[in-house]
Design a protein around this nucleic acid. Structure first.
Lengths: 184, 184
DNA sequence: GTCTATAAAGCGATAGAC
DNA sequence: GTCTATCGCTTTATAGAC
């Protein structure tokens, strides 16, 4: 039987979207109250350390999702090519084909990064390293694999920035496609 | 004889750095007071519309700088190749070889964009279009030139994100170099 | 152009009842 | 787990003197 009452895990995705829209410092507890339907007391019940703990939970949730849907396939696919194909497919899906930004990337740009340093660093370094290893198994040299992985991860981040600056998600989808085609 | 008293134009670069560090909503007037040495009254004297007008002035200043140092060389160089070389050199210089973020890109990611929509859009579309035209004059086809320009501009933005996430400016410099080498 | 003083609102966070 | 009420602080912005 489904629980009607809000659970911590049901709140986290909503928090993620609020942080995406307003950034970390631009997000107020009253906005969170509005969007989650939970009063401040309930929020502090779930997250005793307040806004900072909410953001940490969101970042952990994002990392878990990428671990499950992007990094694991990159590592464990029998064929590296199918792992790479899955990565591009899941990335397109995760970022709603360019209509959704990368929260970790957004946090990285200003002093928000300093409050979540380890999580921000881990997300991108795990992604880059895992991708480079997959490219190596595909046959690329160590150096080229590392460079290409860096190009792809940063290319994705930049495409999200550019797409939003133009309010045109297609900028993201076609850039993502070109990144993928470079591997063929 | 040099003026000792602060002028509007002297304040704008300082404002830019404060916005870079804290983001738009993370920047408070008291922080600005601290960094500029100007009291609130002086700030409102120069910028009657407050924080929003300060950010607009910063964005206009950035656009002017790029117009002068990046877009104009791209358009007016006798040889497109030397214009492109100048672009990469100036971009590396502007972003302090990866130690400085792109404020316009940062503004693009959250709802700050909505307050400065035209300026954010213009900065990136002018850059992309001007670069594409330069690549065309270099001999690339219309389609390839447009795609390559998009790859380069978004590649630069992504490299800034990735460099800061890793707290490693070298990520930026080597990605920038690879983008430039692709044109050779 | 800069100062002091201050207003009105919003902020994150907490207390105690239920 | 959620409610109301409230605390102490900071926010943007303004007024009026100099």
């Amino acid at each position: 039987m489904p629980r009607e009452i809000a659970e911590r895990k049901d709140i986290i995705p909503v928090l993620g979207e609020v942080f995406r829209e307003h950034g970390y410092s631009g997000t107020s507890l009253s906005e969170i109250t509005l969007r989650t339907g939970l009063g401040k007391s309930s929020l502090y019940h779930f997250f005793p350390n307040g806004k900072k703990e909410m953001a940490e939970a969101v970042l952990d949730h994002i990392t878990d999702w990428f671990e499950q849907n992007v990094f694991m396939p990159l590592r464990d696919s029998d064929d590296p090519v199918s792992g790479l194909r899955k990565m591009f497919r899941e990335v397109d899906r995760y970022f709603y084909s360019g209509k959704r930004i990368c929260l970790v990337g957004a946090f990285a740009l200003d002093d928000t990064r300093d409050h979540f340093e380890a999580r921000v660093n881990d997300y991108f370094s795990t992604w880059t390293i895992t991708l480079a290893q997959s490219l190596k198994r595909k046959g690329l040299g160590t150096r080229v694999a590392r460079d290409t992985a860096e190009d792809i991860v940063s290319g994705i981040q930049g495409a999200l920035v550019l797409a939003r600056s133009q309010d045109d998600p297609k900028v993201f989808t076609r850039t993502l496609k070109r990144l993928q085609d470079r591997l063929a």
